[in-house]
């Protein structure tokens, strides 16, 4: 929220305040914050001079925008044709089971966001999973879980008696 004052303004001010730059601004906000908050949506719409509804319909129309906070790690499973033929869907189902979250959702502890993408254009490596920015080729659910474990934190030392951090 508020330590983003500068960046949010800076982001929108990269562009002229015209409706055609709406998507640019939302993309930059998305990549900076991981999602588009209500506040930032208002700022962008005001700045580019469009009604809030337009900002909201744009953000819900395009797949890359999120209106909820993302997890710390983003797991994207490719479901391009090649990956589909090589079992991409199975990986999705398996990861859904293991992380206990439906594709497109974020785990309750805000650690992982699982999503599917239509094709990352790396068909030769099918099935492909992209974790954060890293392309993982010839994936299986098992390999993926192993990879996710390396990203994980050791939780137990940090959780205190009543609170959580």
């Amino acid at each position: 929220m508020s330590q983003s004052v500068e960046t949010l303004d800076e982001i929108v001010e990269r562009y002229p305040g015209q409706p055609e730059y709406l998507i640019f601004m939302l993309q930059d906000i998305q990549s900076t914050y991981g999602y588009i908050s209500e506040d930032s949506m208002k700022v962008v719409c005001d700045y580019s001079g469009v009604p809030l509804t337009q900002g909201y319909s744009v953000a819900t129309f395009y797949q890359s925008f999120r209106l909820d906070p993302r997890g710390e790690h983003e797991v994207r499973v490719c479901l391009g044709t090649a990956c589909h033929l090589k079992g991409g869907q199975r990986i999705v189902e398996e990861v859904e089971r293991r992380l206990n979250v439906a594709a497109g959702g974020t785990t309750e502890d805000l650690r992982y966001t699982l999503s599917t993408v239509n094709c990352v254009g790396a068909c030769a490596l099918a099935p492909v999973v992209v974790v954060d920015e890293e392309y993982l080729s010839n994936m299986t659910a098992k390999k993926l879980e192993k990879h996710l474990k390396t990203l994980d934190y050791d939780l137990e030392n940090e959780t205190k008696e009543h609170g959580h951090v």
Binding site: M1, Y33, G34, P69, G71, L110, Y153, E158, V165
Partner: peptide, 13 residues
């Protein structure tokens, strides 16, 4: 937000 949670965890608030 997710990134703030990371900071929060690091600082142990």
């Amino acid at each position: 937000s997710a990134s703030e949670r990371v900071v929060n965890r690091k600082l142990g608030i």
